[in-house]
Amino acid sequence: MHELGAPVLIDQHCHSVVGAELGEDAFASLLTESDRPLGPGASPWDSALGLAVRRWCAPVLELPQFASVEAYRERRRELGVAEATRRLLRAAGLGACLVDTGLTEAAGVPLLSPEELGGVAHADVHEIVRIERVAELATTPATAAHTWAATVGDALRRAARNAVGLKSVVAYRCGLDFDARRPAPAEVANAAAVHLASGGGRLTHPVLLRHLLWEALELRLPLQLHTGFGDPDLVLHRSDPSLLTGFIRAVEPLGTPLVLLHGWPYHRQAAWLAQAFPHVYCDLGLTLTHVGAGARRVLAETLELAPFHKLLFSTDAYGLPELYLVGSAAFTDALDAWLGEAVPVPAEAARIVALISGENARRLYKLP
């Protein structure tokens, strides 16, 4: 951890973890963003993330760094799911977790509830509501096109009552190069008719997604937006956060904070947007978990432009407690390296560490 003392980390975007033993293939599937079968002899362990798990997590399970995959999996089975999860989550040093509740299982296994996650991690837990899931759950066979907007709006307001923020995966559903303007009621009703005629289900109609974004912004809670890489369901070049520039300008009068998640390979664009617009923030989350030794370079490139009070820490951990520890370790290691080169004054370095590690998130999400 940081030479100036372990920072209090607020993980501003994450998911829960499984509470049951996973088979070898199911476990390995959570070490990659790909959902495709691998070729003969291939394994997700053979990656920067697989190496990071063996580097950072093995010692927590009383194994040497870079222990073999077989030794790691065997030690995990010896300890049992509950004990391994407890050790790994607490080693991550988290003070609070902002949990996206839009996912409820991983590799076909249910995730722990947010409350259970917080108990095991010894961390405060707060909810982030995924707006597309709310709209999908609110839409039933009885929903009419002319009432879709009101039905979904009511559901979103109810879901947000106890949340500290909202999240959109519009990058996956239609890309970030969407029309920035707020759609008129007639447009929404017509789009809802098309959506309902197709059977409802997964929300992909650009007009309805835009309407949902504007509705969410009026709730005045920070809105997280997935940008950059992810699973094969997205088209990478359409997840470039700079494509949101028109939308960012259009919603600026509302003043609702926008948080650009992940970013890679467009993290520099996200950093520029955070510098240019007062209501835009960014994190690196999933990126630092996956890029291995490249985490130092990526964080340094982000800090070329991102103001210190606009960059947030997150892991985007999902399914495996290892991803919490790898995310926090990669972040603190990369920040240490950047500080060692850029900030030779300890007091100033400590101030920047405190901002990025947790104070920015505490201020933005109005956490106690």
Rank of each mutant, 00 (worst) to 15 (best):
V109T: 15
P110I: 02
P110S: 11
P110A: 04
P110Y: 04
P110W: 03
L111K: 11
L111M: 07
L111I: 04
L111W: 03
L112S: 02
L112Q: 01
S113G: 08
S113L: 06
S113A: 07
S113Q: 05
S113R: 06
E115S: 09
L117H: 00
L117M: 04
L117C: 04
L117P: 00
L117Q: 01
G119R: 04
G119P: 04
V120Y: 05
V120P: 01
V120A: 09
V120T: 10
H122N: 14
A123M: 01
A123N: 04
A123R: 01
D124N: 06
D124H: 12
V125P: 02
V125S: 02
H126Q: 05
H126P: 04
E127Q: 10
I128T: 00
V129Q: 03
V129E: 00
R130W: 00
R130N: 04
R130M: 00
R130L: 00
I131R: 01
I131E: 02
I131T: 02
E132D: 06
E132R: 02
E132M: 01
E132F: 02
R133L: 06
V134S: 09
V134L: 06
V134C: 06
V134I: 13
A135R: 09
A135Q: 05
A135W: 07
E136L: 06
L137W: 12
L137T: 10
L137A: 14
A138T: 12
A138M: 10
A138D: 05
A138V: 10
T140D: 08
T140K: 14
T140F: 05
P141L: 09
P141H: 07
A142V: 08
A142C: 07
A142N: 12
T143C: 09
T143K: 12
T143F: 11
A144N: 07
A144I: 05
A144E: 15
A144C: 13
A145L: 12
A145H: 13
H146P: 05
H146D: 15
T147G: 08
T147A: 15
T147N: 11
W148S: 08
W148A: 08
A149W: 06
A149I: 03
T151A: 07
T151H: 06
V152I: 14
V152M: 10
V152C: 13
G153H: 05
D154C: 13
A155P: 11
A155H: 09
L156V: 06
L156R: 05
R157L: 07
R157T: 09
R157M: 08
R158N: 10
R158E: 15
A159D: 10
A159S: 07
A159V: 00
A160Y: 03
R161L: 14
N162C: 10
A163I: 03
A163L: 05
A163T: 00
V164E: 00
V164Y: 03
V164R: 13
V164F: 06
G165K: 02
L166N: 03
L166A: 04
K167Q: 00
K167E: 02
S168H: 01
V169S: 13
V169R: 06
V169L: 15
V169Y: 07
V170Y: 12
V170A: 15
V170T: 15
A171W: 10
Y172C: 08
R173N: 08
R173P: 01
R173C: 09
R173S: 10
C174T: 15
C174D: 13
C174G: 11
G175Q: 12
L176E: 09
D177N: 15
F178E: 13
D179H: 14
D179R: 15
A180P: 13
A180G: 08
